[in-house]
């Protein structure tokens, strides 16, 4: 299968802090890749370096066979990005934000259909800031899908969603994946990762500590549940046990 994203020897420091150190991975077409790790482990920095919004100190990045720093215009016709925080104008309405987003691409999906698919069809005239947390999160996934992308980056995909909404989002992503969409996501919910991700990387303080499938992660750890295995890899076992 064709590699959609390849990253080789990515390193990025902020002053003395090594945010990401010699990180290599690749994402195959039509798969879901999960980037895991505690807050500050280097997930967002990795995504930003892959997208070219941050400049890596070292390393080679290729997305859809293009260098995000060189073929920006061409590449971002085919890439959807959902950021961790909401980046929108103060008094903008849902329809307006979708319309502007659609206008940025040569071809775009019907955003009204996407809003319907994500269960917020009647929110077009609402101010974005007046949406609930879950509705906002769904809107931001819609925005990432508007370009009819070949690959999407979803940062903390379902944070703020209730149980029902999370499952709805999963179903939609599974369908999109079946249609050939490649997805790179970060998440703090291990149930979600188990259901969605074909391959995962676990980062700990900027370093890769695990790269493989969920099953392999469980097998390499002394545990039989993925969440326990994840915590074992990130070395938060003691804190985890104390909290129990």
């Amino acid at each position: 299968m064709e590699d959609i994203i390849t990253v080789e020897h990515l390193s990025k420091s902020y002053g003395n802090l090594k945010a990401v150190e010699d990180f290599s991975f690749s994402v195959k077409k039509g798969t879901v890749f999960g980037l895991l790790g505690a807050n500050g482990a280097g997930k967002s920095t990795t995504i930003e370096c892959v997208l070219g919004t941050k400049k890596a100190d070292w390393g080679v990045v290729s997305v859809l066979g293009m260098d995000p720093n060189v073929n920006r215009k061409e590449l971002f016709e085919q890439v959807g990005v959902q950021f961790q925080e909401a980046h929108y104008q103060e008094n903008i309405k849902v329809n307006e934000l979708c319309e502007v987003t659609a206008s940025l691409y040569k071809s775009s999906a019907d955003y009204k259909q996407l809003l319907t698919n994500f269960g917020i069809p009647d929110k077009g005239g609402t101010l974005v800031r007046e949406l609930s947390g879950g509705q906002k999160q769904r809107l931001f996934i819609v925005l990432a899908l508007i370009p009819n992308p070949k690959v999407v980056f979803l940062d903390e995909l379902t944070t703020g969603l209730d149980a029902r909404a999370r499952r709805d989002v999963w179903q939609i992503l599974i369908r999109l994946k079946a249609d050939g969409l490649t997805i790179l996501l970060t998440s703090h919910f291990m149930d979600e990762v188990e259901i969605l991700c074909d391959v995962i990387c676990i980062l700990k303080m900027g370093k890769l500590v695990f790269y493989g499938t969920v099953t392999e992660a469980i097998n390499q750890s002394p545990h039989d549940k993925f969440e326990d295995a994840y915590l074992w890899f990130t070395d938060e076992r003691s804190a985890y046990n104390e909290s129990l």
């Binding site: 016709e77 890439v79 940025l104 040569k106």
Partner: peptide, 14 residues
């Protein structure tokens, strides 16, 4: 500060 400029960076428009 709302990172709207940054959001435009990852679109073809800039």
């Amino acid at each position: 500060s709302k990172q709207i400029l940054k959001r435009f960076k990852v679109t073809p428009i800039g």
